[in-house]
Computed example of a mutant assay.
Amino acid sequence: MAEKTRGTKTARAEDVPMGPTGRPYHGFPTPPALSSHGPARIISLCNQKGGVGKTTTTINLAASLAQYGRRVLAVDFDPQGALSAGLGITTHDVPTIYDLLLDTKRDPHEVIVQTSTPGLDVLPANIDLSAAEVHLVNEVARETILSRVLRKVSGEYDVILVDCQPSLGLLTVNALTASHGVLIPLECEFFALRGVALLVETIDKVRDRLNPAIELDGVLATMYDPRTLHSREVLERVVEAFGDDVLETVIGRTVKFPDASVSGVPITQFAPEHAAAQAYLRLARELVDRGAVA
């Protein structure tokens, strides 16, 4: 009899679905519609290591939030301009975020571009942005220039996502100073894990000296491949290091992301039924559930 009872308990435990992070898997409810928009919560997507999924996450999280009725502004803050290209926006011979940084009196509405995704706008960037740090280094309160730019339009959006460049220079400090929260996309690979401590240290310095209100909204595991022991071990170490700051949603590795980028649309539009598209919709629901987004 005792054995049967133990068997029943085991069966019930096994009935609880577990996510890749080793925690119970939640579906997260569909967020209710908003009766009004703004002021925006500004979230920077940061990691000084390149190729960890910052731009992919910015594009697809922005599109997912827009799909749930949020008004979203995505800020391309990387001189490579990958976010702009990934949303099919031409950045040659047009005003960009660089022009707004150099002339803070300029109206951001002259630069904002509407995308093919309803509710999603973009502040584009191109290679000109690489010169911004040189131009801004002698400016008074140079760390707050992006904040002054975004302040002019924050009342029109529910969330502003800033796609940072892979460095911890003046542009990234500007993004962190302007932000209410930080989302860290982290590739499930050993070398990606090594640099996160330095990023967290930078966030702490910005909190101490420039922006006391900034919060860590979460660590997002990306490029996860459950078939490899390495991916599973790295994710396990991330959960050990960051605990509940690790988001339950995990983004898997798939060739659909570059395919969608070539098409200039988010994956939620390119392949809406694909697991990757569903993962970003789930990420949007999780962030709303956590209170990181209205």
Rank of each mutant, 00 (worst) to 15 (best):
M1C: 06
G7K: 06
G7M: 01
T8E: 14
T8C: 12
M18R: 13
M18D: 03
T21C: 02
T21A: 03
P24S: 00
Y25F: 10
H26S: 12
H26P: 06
F28V: 01
G38M: 05
G38A: 04
K49Y: 11
V52N: 02
K54M: 07
T55W: 05
T58C: 14
A62S: 13
S64T: 07
Y68R: 12
G69S: 04
V72N: 10
V72L: 08
A74W: 10
P79S: 11
L83Y: 05
S84G: 15
H92V: 14
D99V: 08
P108S: 12
P108G: 13
H109F: 09
E110W: 05
T115H: 08
V122W: 11
L123P: 10
D128A: 11
A141R: 13
L146I: 08
R148M: 09
R151I: 07
R151P: 01
D163H: 06
C164A: 04
S167F: 05
N174E: 04
L176N: 06
G181K: 03
L193Y: 04
A197Y: 11
I203Y: 09
V206E: 03
D217A: 08
M223W: 02
P226M: 00
R227T: 07
L235F: 00
E236L: 07
D244S: 15
K256I: 15
K256Q: 15
F257D: 10
P272F: 09
H274M: 08
R285V: 03
V288P: 08
A292E: 10
A294T: 08
